[in-house]
Computed example of a mutant assay.
Amino acid sequence: MDLAFLVVEWLGKPAWMWLSFLGIVVALLAFDLGVLHRDNREIEVRESLLLSAMYVGLGLAFGGWVWWQLGAELGMNYLTGFVVEKTLALDNVFVIALIFSFFAVPRIYQHRVLFWGILGVIVLRAIMIGLGATLVAEFSWVLYIFAAFLIVTGIKMLVMGDKEPEIGQNPLVRFMRRRFNVTDEHHGQDFFVKKANPQTGRMVWFVTPLFMALVMVEIADVIFAVDSVPAIFAITTDPFIVYTSNIFAILGLRALYFALAAMIHRFQYLKPALAIVLMFIGSKIFVADLLGLEKFPAALSLGVTLSIIAAGILYSLWRTRKPEIAA
């Protein structure tokens, strides 16, 4: 059997690297769906934390392999992208919790929505990153647009604060309710159900609130990808590093959701820290040009990013700690 295709380069890296990564992702998804969560059930906080630790460990281990295989600079770029995307995912958890609350999704079926949501994310991110890589390869000045966008986004996040999105007023929710048959109640784990039309009596397909929640989760990821994809391209333009760091950070989002949803209020100062990180990442390109550097040092970028996010987490935990009970 001719295995020469394995060393053929695709998007800057040998095919065997891409196939190895995709094999790991498929194996993790199969293990999650086929072994851990074969049946619908509620995920407790302890299990959520253990699974999250496993996914973070795998993501960091893959980063170690990138460091060993491709060098220290790409390894640090991967870790920086992984940390930034993981932090953005924390903000995404807050929006997902609002979506589940609005559509009254039972906890027993939330994992099902998140699982199919992750599959959609893997495909959508591949498309967006592919388009971004093509644009950057053809027009290098696009990086400056990405950088300026990140600075503006960071400033906007600081100014707007924690303003909650109004799910009920979302144009897509109103469109689906206007154009499709939508049930008022859930029908177990079904996204679609066939029932009698109340006006004609004919059996027709209805969309359930579970499917509407899935659509909104996918749309939420597209919106967050508008921030995260430019952010990772401002860190590195290597498509392999961009995609793998994104996907490894997102893979653990399902597990992380059930732990964070119960204590999201403890991280209320993380968003300003994330806003500062986005502004820092966006400004790196301009700073490197001003200093006459070919690239902003990867080690410094990783150190600053970790420091800002760690400060945001620690300050949040300190400010939201329980007051001591007087004796």
Results as ranks from 00 to 15, higher is better:
residue 2 D to S: 04
residue 3 L to Y: 08
residue 5 F to V: 12
residue 9 E to L: 06
residue 14 P to I: 01
residue 22 L to P: 11
residue 34 G to D: 05
residue 34 G to V: 07
residue 39 D to A: 13
residue 44 E to G: 14
residue 46 R to K: 10
residue 47 E to I: 01
residue 48 S to Q: 03
residue 49 L to S: 07
residue 55 Y to E: 04
residue 55 Y to L: 00
residue 61 A to K: 02
residue 70 L to K: 05
residue 73 E to R: 13
residue 73 E to S: 13
residue 77 N to H: 13
residue 80 T to A: 10
residue 84 V to D: 03
residue 85 E to P: 00
residue 86 K to D: 04
residue 87 T to D: 02
residue 90 L to R: 02
residue 91 D to P: 02
residue 93 V to L: 13
residue 104 A to I: 09
residue 106 P to D: 06
residue 106 P to A: 02
residue 113 V to K: 00
residue 121 V to L: 09
residue 127 I to N: 07
residue 146 F to Q: 08
residue 146 F to K: 04
residue 149 F to L: 10
residue 152 V to W: 10
residue 154 G to F: 01
residue 158 L to Y: 04
residue 159 V to G: 06
residue 163 K to G: 12
residue 163 K to Q: 13
residue 171 P to I: 00
residue 176 M to S: 13
residue 179 R to M: 13
residue 179 R to I: 13
residue 183 T to V: 01
residue 183 T to M: 10
residue 185 E to M: 02
residue 209 P to S: 00
residue 211 F to Y: 06
residue 212 M to F: 05
residue 212 M to C: 12
residue 217 V to M: 07
residue 221 D to M: 06
residue 224 F to M: 09
residue 226 V to I: 14
residue 227 D to L: 06
residue 230 P to L: 01
residue 233 F to S: 08
residue 235 I to F: 07
residue 237 T to C: 08
residue 237 T to D: 14
residue 240 F to M: 03
residue 241 I to H: 07
residue 247 I to T: 10
residue 254 R to H: 05
residue 254 R to M: 10
residue 254 R to C: 10
residue 261 A to T: 14
residue 263 M to H: 14
residue 266 R to P: 09
residue 275 A to D: 05
residue 285 I to G: 12
residue 286 F to W: 12
residue 288 A to M: 00
residue 289 D to P: 11
residue 298 A to W: 00
residue 309 I to H: 01
residue 309 I to Y: 00
residue 314 L to C: 08
residue 323 P to I: 12
residue 324 E to N: 07
residue 327 A to E: 12
residue 327 A to C: 08
